[in-house]
Amino acid sequence: MTATATPPSPSPTPAITDTLPDDRPAPIGERRKLSSRILGLWAWVVYLWLFAPILVIIAFSFNKPTGKFNTAWKQFTLDNWAHPFDKPEYKDALITSLQVAAVSVLIATVIGGLMALAQSKYEFKGKGLVNVIVILPLTTPEIVMGSSLFTLFFARNVGFGFTTIVIAHVLFCVSFVALTVQARMRGFDWGLEDAAMDLGSSPLRTFWTVTFPLILPGIAAAALLSFALSIDDYIITSFVAGDATTTFPMQIFNANKVEIPPQVQVLATMILLFTLGLMAIGAWRTIKKAATT
């Protein structure tokens, strides 16, 4: 996949070449070619670095380890893929993570999306303050959010478990959703709503038939991002999970000094393929839409 990172041709991209005047002195052109090559090479190196651990994870999902740690290469096998759910503690933890992510993303997308709608459509008192409150969780280290939620639940005698994890996950997702959707709505032509309503459409119907389809890509992107954040979170979750509930990252972290079975790599590859699939569907829909309009 990283093969696409190379710009093999020494000439710059067409868009830039088109705008270059023909009487450009040669040395600068030469220098530009050289800098293009160095940048292209750098991109190769960075992509190799970015993907090295991913390739290791995928490769080790096909490894047959000798001990409890699937960290040294021994032998190729398809066994792990044939039995991805053989380790019940990892399977259960992954199911918990998926449930947490599903509930949290749903709540965060709805309430975050509504906030973004209010923020980008209306001018109102206290808008600046609301902006600050939305941004604050993103500039607060996870360890502080986790520990403050822990103190709140502890002080109020709230039982730690699934609900407290969902509360925490909605919290760190809702700001991401609000900001992502808000960014997508910037410059949205609210006159379209007026046009629909002038033609006799009710406000609610206008929202569902005019506004919502237009902001849907932004909402979908925000939901996908929230899903990735939720399913991957360790630090905040470890503070609010309690003893009885274990998410997938928690299970890996707690067990990594004891064992790393190959199922870990198999499940990680599955999660990667799943999110890649979602991204691909999104990209395909955008392309299709662009082709039909």
């Binding site: 990172a5 651990p53 290791v56 960290t71 990680a268």
Partner: peptide
């Protein structure tokens, strides 16, 4: 495409990625 590729590694678990570095550097 290349911009999307920057994001791909970050859709794999943070912990498992870091454990993979442990394998690479071990």
């Amino acid at each position: 495409v290349l911009l999307g590729l920057v994001m791909v590694p970050f859709f794999t678990s943070f912990l498992i990625r870091t454990l993979a570095w442990k394998t690479i550097l071990g």
